[in-house]
Write a protein that binds this DNA or RNA. Structure first.
Lengths: 215, 215
DNA sequence: GAATTAATTGAACGTTCGTTTTATTACTGC
DNA sequence: GCAGTAATAAAACGAACGTTCAATTAATTC
């Protein structure tokens, strides 16, 4: 046989991407074989090479688009003129929503960096660094304005990102907590972690621990 | 050739373990070949099978001993009768010290779970859960005593562990920050995150953000 | 110093891997 | 309906994989 009835390049490529994300997230990039991926799509292995020249190209494409998507999501949801506390809240909300919505893709982007060639690794890390830089910038602004109480901006940014991204490790939709509840709790923890004051103008007592961070 | 002069089973096994941890951490379990591991040790691939019956047995042994070591380290460093804040501080200190000291082994234990057979995965997860349970217990005690201000004990425990373990992703000995500085900052962040009061008896104003957590 | 045990080599086994090549069929534009 | 292109199958490639086996030598025991 050769071309099958109803075959469509666009649909097949989309199916390949989706199946690849799921298989790599579950078994790992090295453990997933091209034949296994092809079987999942319902196609022969050779057909995959019409869309991705090598296995690593496939991995790189998935990662790059995931990282770009993350950055674009933030740029669309960032408040333009808000104070650092509101900016931070928006960052946390975007980060959690994006990652919970794409648990498998996040797993791939975080776990399979070592399977990239050096220059492609550099490209992905550049995208990641640019995204993290946004958070550091918010933290610095807040610290300088006296709204946050932070020992080390870079270290705090890394701690926050690790904490937030970690949601995908244990969160399963439909279990004990809803996405809204999880996000609310993470917002509270974040604001306490950075020592945020609820009001940057008044110099009243700290009410951080009890505040509702619905900024 | 056959047995080489000066060969010693104990030494060879130790060398295999060490080389395996490093190679798996760097390239991943699937990507590391038994021949590559043997070459690193300075031995033929067949010799490895004297010490570990299969490749997965090797992985499982490394993981199990790492998790057991983590739990034992905590049991040796836990304060017997301290209040929850001090208990939490000791937990954080032990966790960070242990993980920074064994970055590669931690990477293996965190990243290669999917390469284990189902029942071995269960065994490792049981060890991990037992260790995490200790933290949840501390948080619950502190919350009930009114020392901590926590929305959800389980969620906070996961967030803290993800945050602390994340240290190994970016921390490199000898760079900008020392282990002591990192640990101190993480202690401060942890105490703020759980909304700890510096003194559980007095009901004075919160000074969390500015407190030196040298418990 | 002979017998036994411990440690390792070298070669081989069957399988699976990523990838390439060639041929064949379905679709599209005219 | 015919030419050209898009999409796939089928088969094969050499290389690498985890693992096994028999042979061989070093150390130990008595």
């Amino acid at each position: 046989m050769a071309r099958t009835t109803g075959s469509d390049g666009g649909r097949t490529e989309a199916a390949v991407r989706e199946a690849a994300v799921n298989l790599i997230a579950r078994y790992g990039y090295e453990a997933m074989s091209m034949r296994q991926l092809a079987a999942e799509v319902g196609v022969q292995a050779a057909a995959l090479y019409r869309y991705f020249p090598t296995k690593e190209d496939l991995l790189f494409t998935l990662m790059r688009e995931h990282m770009q998507g993350l950055h674009e999501a933030w740029e669309h949801s960032r408040p333009g003129d808000a104070d650092p506390a509101r900016q931070l809240a928006a960052y946390v909300r975007n980060h959690i929503a994006f990652h919970i919505g794409r648990r498998h893709a996040t797993h791939v982007s975080n776990m399979e960096l070592r399977s990239l060639s050096p220059d492609r690794l550099t490209q992905i890390l550049r995208l990641r660094t640019a995204y993290e830089k946004e958070l550091r910038s918010i933290l610095r602004d807040g610290a300088e304005a006296g709204i946050f109480n932070i020992e080390d901006t870079g270290l705090t940014a890394m701690a926050l990102i690790q904490m937030m991204t970690g949601v995908i490790v244990w969160f399963r939709p439909g279990e004990r907590l809803s996405i809204t509840e999880v996000t609310t709790t993470y917002l509270s923890m974040t604001m306490r972690l950075v020592g945020a004051k609820i009001d940057s103008i008044t110099t009243g007592p700290r009410v951080t621990s009890d505040a509702q961070w619905t900024l």
